[in-house]
């Protein structure tokens, strides 16, 4: 039997908001489950979603350390782009998610890695936030730049910026 070339999907995961992070992982895992080759390029606030949750203060100097205190990142305690209301919205949303059996984001990252999804952290964002490879979850790819994201996107049938 001739080996078919799998369709490719590229997602730029830019946002740190809960209501954008979920579409990223849901669409990515579903595409992978449909036999597609999926790449997630994680940049800016989207990169912070890949921080290990137990990581605490990160950074390489006082400014990036301070930044990590103000914006710790990680897969928990994400704000909403609407109805955030000082954390009330996400708190309620989390209850609703548990009630509806929707897995937490960190579990989605594990599923994404298991499905062979290529998760590429943006090198420039890592430098800007003073993040090291070890600050990010296991199973993801090596940090890359925009040229890699463009090359991936050029070869993909579906490209999303979320």
């Amino acid at each position: 039997m001739m080996e078919e070339q799998a369709d490719k999907v590229t997602i730029i995961s830019w946002s740190g908001d809960l209501d954008r992070a979920y579409p990223v992982v849901i669409l990515a895992t579903t595409a992978a489950a449909a036999g597609m080759e999926v790449t997630i390029f994680s940049t800016f606030w989207g990169l912070l979603l890949l921080k290990k949750k137990e990581r605490g203060v990160t950074g390489t100097d006082w400014m990036t350390k301070m930044l990590s205190l103000m914006e710790p990142g990680g897969p928990v305690k994400l704000p909403l782009s609407k109805l955030n209301m000082g954390g009330m919205g996400p708190w309620m949303m989390k209850k609703i998610f548990v009630k509806n059996n929707i897995p937490p984001l960190e579990e989605f990252w594990k599923m994404a890695v298991d499905l062979g999804i290529k998760i590429l952290p943006c090198q420039m964002t890592m430098d800007a936030f003073g993040l090291k490879r070890d600050d990010l979850i296991d199973g993801i790819g090596e940090p890359v730049g925009a040229a890699t994201a463009i090359a991936e996107a050029a070869a993909a049938k579906i490209n999303w910026f979320i």
Partner: peptide, 14 residues
């Protein structure tokens, strides 16, 4: 049963 999108599809893949 009891699971929502995308879990049934991910289970189907497995």
């Amino acid at each position: 049963r009891g699971l929502v999108c995308p879990m049934p599809i991910l289970k189907a893949k497995k």
